[in-house]
């Protein structure tokens, strides 16, 4: 699905914020991306959602070298990635409905289909009554749910979420994690950047641990036990 080989990233002439990053995400995998603040999680995410090019190394996505992809190919790759930004990045002039509908319109789905899918998803995230509301009139938690709905509406092959449950209460947070789990079972590869130790322990997916720009892949404590249970 996605492979990083000796990837480095620096901003301008500054020091490398990411150094020699190597990892592979298999299709259908689920990872938590964690590490202390300033470790480079957001920078790594931006490389994964093709928001910037690495200053060195090679990124392969869907079996294609990203640096060799044409602009239309890059656009197609991005259409298969859902992103939940830490600051949500909703378009403030568009209603909740239109924000969620945006990815479907970009890929050219018919309006009838868009209406049905978006309404259903907004109902599911508990915002059925806020379809016409503009984001600035909604709470942080509601905005976050719109951002999540927008990221999953196209059933992306790769879902990247930066602190997706940060502004949500436990119940909604759990529902959304279950949604991510469901998507994962349907084949979506998921990476969630989070500091939430409880969440990581509860779901027990492997972790990509970033420290001072270097990455380590860490198996979760409950991973062996769960794998054994699944095998048995």
């Amino acid at each position: 699905m996605i492979r990083f080989e000796h990837v480095g990233l620096r901003y301008g002439f500054g020091p490398e914020v990411l150094s020699d990053i190597n990892f592979t995400l298999d299709p259908g995998s689920f990872h938590f991306l964690t590490g202390p603040s300033g470790a480079g999680k957001t920078s790594l995410m931006s490389l994964m959602y093709l928001g910037r090019h690495p200053t060195r190394g090679r990124i392969t996505m869907y079996d294609q070298n990203v640096s060799e992809a044409t602009r239309p190919q890059l656009a197609q790759m991005r259409q298969r990635i859902g992103v939940v930004f830490q600051d949500f990045r909703l378009l403030p002039h568009l209603s909740a409905f239109d924000n969620v509908a945006l990815p479907l319109r970009i890929i050219g789905r018919p309006e009838k289909e868009i209406r049905a899918h978006v309404s259903e998803l907004l109902e599911w995230v508990g915002l059925g009554d806020y379809q016409r509301a503009l984001p600035p009139t909604l709470s942080g938690g509601q905005q976050q749910r719109i951002a999540i709905a927008r990221a999953v509406i196209v059933r992306p092959r790769l879902l990247l979420a930066d602190e997706p449950t940060g502004n949500l209460d436990d119940e909604i947070g759990l529902r959304l994690m279950n949604l991510f789990d469901q998507l994962n079972r349907m084949g979506t590869t998921i990476v969630i950047a989070t500091h939430n130790q409880v969440l990581m322990d509860k779901f027990g997916h492997p972790r990509l641990l970033l420290e001072a720009g270097h990455l380590r892949v860490v198996r979760a404590r409950g991973w062996i036990r769960r794998t054994m249970a699944e095998v048995l």
């Binding site: 928001g51 602009r71 239309p72 197609q76 991005r78 990635i81 378009l91 945006l102 990815p103």
Partner: peptide, 16 residues
């Protein structure tokens, strides 16, 4: 620009 970049990141092509 931020809105344009967002559309771009969501896979909107140049023509769109």
């Amino acid at each position: 620009r931020p809105d344009v970049e967002l559309l771009h990141l969501m896979g909107a092509g140049d023509n769109y």
